[in-house]
Design a protein around this nucleic acid. Structure first.
Lengths: 131, 131
DNA sequence: CAGATACATCGATGAATGTCAATGGATGTG
DNA sequence: CACATCCATTGACATTCATCGATGTATCTG
């Protein structure tokens, strides 16, 4: 039987394990947290999703264009030409932005008007800063 | 020769073109800006790249773990196990974060220590808010 | 020098994403 | 009703991305 099974002392060869690199505790210590992060896994997934919805040039431009448009709203056909993408692609990006909560969609007649959700960008910015 | 070529008046059928939906100007008006956005295209690409680097759960967790680690820095081997990904994958994500300017890398001996760049998250958060 | 450890890079593979043409549904017009 | 416009959805395709095993390099130890 190897000695290590009786006296599981950290060996002195330098390895990565934090327990090895830390000075040896003489008294019993509280069990170190297994995960050295304090971020809620669900919150991380959520924030990553919010950022992924923003992480595209066309979508950032869409947000800016909608916000700067007359009355704070714009319909799809207003955005196609300045964006330089096809109508299905523009609708696709708008759907992603609306799904993430950055835009609201209201249909009036044949047109679909998109409007920036107030404070939505500041909210995700705040989440980033407190990370 | 169609009349429209002599008198190019906007027709009355409702179409998307803003010029059609706007009230008809009686006086000559300054040419409307073609692009109803005022965002610098380069800045949009840049911000999208910064956000793309953040838009992944593993990378957000890495930022959090590095920031919360002892001394504000952590080496790769400290992050592999709590993250639950392989060492090449962890190195891959760290490289992306460092390339975007969120982390710095300093090699000391065999270890590579990563450290959060102070203010980098607040900077991108500020860019988001002023979008 | 031989072996072990930490880390990056390479290559391959499966998944996700962006884009457009084509289609379809809904609304308004003549 | 027939037709045009706006918009979303579908399907197909190419590109990008995430992941891991294998390999290579550098450093440290004995």
């Amino acid at each position: 039987m190897p000695v290590s099974e009786i006296l599981p002392l950290p060996d002195l060869t330098a390895r990565c394990s934090p327990a090895v690199r830390e000075p040896i505790a003489l008294e019993p210590i509280a069990p170190a947290p297994v995960a050295p992060e304090q971020i809620d896994p669900e919150q991380v997934e959520s924030l990553a999703g919010l950022l992924k919805a923003l992480a595209h040039p066309a979508r950032l431009r869409l947000l800016s264009m909608v916000a700067a448009h007359d009355g704070g709203e714009a319909c799809v056909c207003d955005l196609i030409e300045p964006l330089g993408l096809s109508q299905p692609t523009v609708s696709h990006h708008l759907k992603i932005l609306a799904g993430a909560g950055y835009l609201t969609r209201s249909q009036r007649g044949t047109w679909a008007y998109y409007r920036l959700v107030p404070g939505s960008l500041d909210a995700v910015a705040a989440l980033l800063s407190e990370l």
